[in-house]
Design a protein around this nucleic acid. Structure first.
Length: 205
DNA sequence: TCGAAGATGAACT
DNA sequence: GTTCATCTTCGAG
């Protein structure tokens, strides 16, 4: 099987929306404390630092938390939401432009038994949802600011999986109602008919 | 220093 | 479909 770790040029593309779509079908891998787990990315959302009220770093807003989004593409942005869930983002674009892609769901490939242990065997679909996949892959706050490469224990591979345009569904992002009109932007991308997608919305199929 | 809200998920009725 | 767990972050005072 052809296997290539994604290079910086992939993440530093100027269009976060194109990177978000290109990440579908890629494989997110973690190797931590001797445990190897991986899953194919089946759902993403694009967030732009400019003209996007749903983004934490909208319109040049800079806080200690969002600082990493201004770094060059390929860095990892993790943060805690609702006091209990970690969300995993991939920073894109060049230094100074705060774009990022939220990984919302994966289809488990390797290390499923480890993921189930991390998820306490409570659910079959261990990678369904942004908080759930972080728990399954062992991603946490200590990963904030790392670069996506094998040395970090977190990276993304291209295994030659091709995702046809007609298999990609575009839909509004989830949980960003506070963003007003920007909540309506079709910046959520997921694989049509994939069981591991976190939420399926009617009228978008 | 303090208060409010949040890019969610699981367990309920 | 509804409720609730749970705590960092950030902006206001």
């Amino acid at each position: 099987m052809k296997k290539t770790v994604l290079n910086p040029a992939f993440y530093q593309h100027y269009s976060v929306e194109e990177v978000a779509q290109a990440l579908l079908g890629k494989v997110l891998v973690t190797h931590k404390e001797g445990i190897y787990t991986s899953g194919m990315i089946v759902e993403t959302e694009a967030y732009s630092g400019r003209h996007d009220k749903a983004c934490h770093a909208n319109n040049g807003k800079r806080t200690p938390r969002t600082e990493i989004m201004y770094a060059e593409g390929g860095h990892i942005y993790t943060y805690l939401i609702y006091g209990m869930h970690i969300l995993f983002n991939v920073v894109t674009n060049m230094e100074g432009l705060a774009d990022a892609v939220l990984i919302r769901a994966i289809e488990p490939l390797e290390g499923l038994e480890h993921m189930q242990v991390r998820r306490k065997l409570s659910h079959q679909q261990v990678g369904k949802g942004p908080g759930a996949l972080c728990k399954a892959l062992g991603i946490g706050k200590p990963d904030y600011g790392l670069y996506l490469e094998e040395a970090s224990g977190i990276w993304i591979e291209d295994r030659g999986i091709k995702v046809p345009e007609q298999e990609v569904v575009k839909a509004p992002r989830v949980g960003v109602d506070y963003a007003g009109d920007d909540a309506l932007l079709l910046r959520r991308y997921y694989l049509k008919n994939n069981m591991h997608v976190s939420k399926v919305i009617k009228n978008y199929s």
